[in-house]
Simulated scan of single mutants.
Amino acid sequence: MMLFTQAMGLPVITADEAEPLGRVEALTIDARSRSIACLRLSGAPKHATAVAWNAVEAVGRDAVIVRSRTAADPGQSGFPVHREALGHRILTEHGAAHGTVKDIAFDPATGEVRTLYTAFGDIPGDRLLGLGSYAVVVGA
């Protein structure tokens, strides 16, 4: 497992030429599949601003390796709109508050969201139902 907070700021480099593409600025979650859809990059002036998760070869403690310059413009590639989950409130499907998201654990091989960590306790990733600008919604 890896945490979102551990992935933030990691350099993103290509496997074929070891070319730096930027750093992980954010991870965009696709709530339908309960997995990471793409990496949002910062510091990538000559490259696109996002890399699809299926282009990721490996995520380690020191870097993220992608197959090649398989980066795409998030506005045109079908990536979900980025909604920040960290720090946002959590509501159950019945509207009950469950604190805020402190961190998120994901499988670095598949991008699957495994656990949402809150001050009120851990929530399994398979309970994730939605992610919007107001809240993260989870099944009760």
Rank of each mutant, 00 (worst) to 15 (best):
D103I: 11
E84I: 02
P20G: 06
M1K: 11
L128P: 01
T28G: 09
D103L: 07
N54E: 13
D62L: 07
K46G: 12
D62Q: 13
R23H: 11
E17H: 14
A135R: 12
T115E: 14
V51H: 01
S77M: 06
A26L: 01
V66M: 08
V56T: 04
S68R: 12
Q76K: 12
F4H: 00
A44G: 14
R67N: 13
S42M: 08
T49S: 15
T118N: 08
A119I: 12
T92D: 00
H88P: 01
Y134T: 12
A7L: 12
A18L: 07
G95K: 06
E17S: 13
Y134G: 04
C38L: 03
G43F: 05
V59A: 10
A72I: 05
Q6T: 14
G121N: 05
A96E: 12
L128T: 00
V136A: 10
V24S: 04
L91W: 09
D73M: 02
V12S: 02
L128A: 00
F106I: 04
F120Q: 15
H82K: 04
M2R: 14
T118G: 08
L86H: 06
L10K: 06
L27Y: 02
I13C: 07
G139L: 12
A7T: 15
H94F: 07
E57C: 15
A37T: 00
G139Y: 09
S42R: 11
G125Q: 03
L10E: 14
R89Y: 07
E112M: 10
H47D: 11
T49Q: 14
V136E: 03
I13K: 11
I104W: 03
E19K: 12
I13W: 11
G130R: 12
G75D: 14
I104L: 07
H88N: 11
R40S: 09
A96Q: 13
A63F: 10
H98Q: 15
G60D: 05
L10Q: 10
G43N: 10
P74C: 08
D122Y: 04
W53F: 15
F79I: 01
E93R: 10
V24D: 08
K102W: 05
R114P: 00
H98M: 13
S33G: 09
R61M: 06
M8H: 15
V59R: 04
P11M: 01
G125D: 01
D126R: 13
A7I: 13
L21H: 00
A63V: 04
G87H: 03
A44N: 15
V113A: 00
A18M: 05
V12G: 02
L116E: 01
D126G: 04
A97G: 08
A44K: 06
A50F: 07
E84V: 04
A37Y: 01
F120S: 14
A18D: 07
T70Q: 11
L116Y: 00
G132Y: 08
H82N: 09
F106E: 04
A7H: 06
R69Y: 08
E84F: 01
T110V: 08
G132H: 08
V101Y: 02
R34N: 06
A71S: 13
E57F: 09
H94M: 10
F4I: 03
R32E: 10
S33L: 10
I65K: 13
S35H: 04
V56A: 06
R40T: 09
V64G: 02
L116G: 02
A7V: 15
L3R: 14
G75T: 06
L128W: 00
G111Y: 02
P20C: 01
V24T: 05
I104H: 03
L86M: 09
A71W: 08
F79Q: 10
P80L: 02
V138Y: 05
L41V: 13
